[in-house]
Simulated assay, not measured.
Amino acid sequence: MSVLHRRALVLGLSAAALGGAAAAADARDITVYKTPWCGCCKGWIAHLRKAGFRAKVVEVEDLAPIRNKHGVPFELSSCHTGVIAGYVVEGHVPPADVVRLVREKPKALGITVPGMPIGSPGMEAPDGRKEAYQTLLLLDRKGRTKVFAQHG
């Protein structure tokens, strides 16, 4: 193998390693859009951080433009919107579901937990009560979904 070929091989392997490291970093970097007055959003962000996510928080007065940009219809919305690795994460989605989304890379816009189910991450009840809820895979801008995970 010539010196030129070895250099090309080393550069190619280095670039691949750096690209892999960047992809791994992106898989834990999430931007969370929330309103300034919502407390449960802070609880959800705390869950994300505890699970190893690096959450950049952006406070906005109106989440509708963010949701519209990412294809989340009102009926599937909640009180905050995350964006990670090209996916939207709407509402009180458990961090494990976010990890699965990024790992599996389904053909979808993202995932959502509509509303604010009691007992979901950030919506814990003082008495420990939990509602059953689903994380939905948001398939398209028409609002079509399928169940991604069951909780409670």
Rank of each mutant, 00 (worst) to 15 (best):
V3H: 14
R6V: 12
R7I: 11
L9N: 09
G12D: 08
S14F: 12
S14M: 14
A15H: 07
G19L: 15
G20V: 03
A22L: 15
A22I: 14
A25P: 03
R28G: 02
D29T: 11
K34S: 06
W37K: 13
W37E: 15
C38T: 06
C40N: 08
G43V: 04
G43K: 02
R49G: 15
K50D: 12
K50S: 12
G52R: 12
A55Y: 01
V57E: 08
V58P: 08
A64D: 13
P65I: 11
N68C: 07
K69H: 15
V72C: 02
V72F: 00
P73L: 05
L76T: 01
S78E: 04
T81N: 08
E90T: 06
G91Q: 00
H92S: 10
V93Y: 03
V93A: 01
P94M: 05
A96N: 08
V98Q: 02
E104Y: 00
E104P: 07
E104K: 11
E104V: 12
K105P: 00
V113P: 01
G115M: 03
P117R: 05
I118E: 09
I118K: 08
I118A: 14
G119L: 03
G119Q: 05
G119V: 05
S120L: 04
G122Y: 02
E124G: 07
E124K: 06
A125V: 13
D127V: 09
K130I: 05
E131I: 04
L136F: 10
L138E: 00
D140P: 10
K146Q: 15
A149Q: 09
H151F: 01
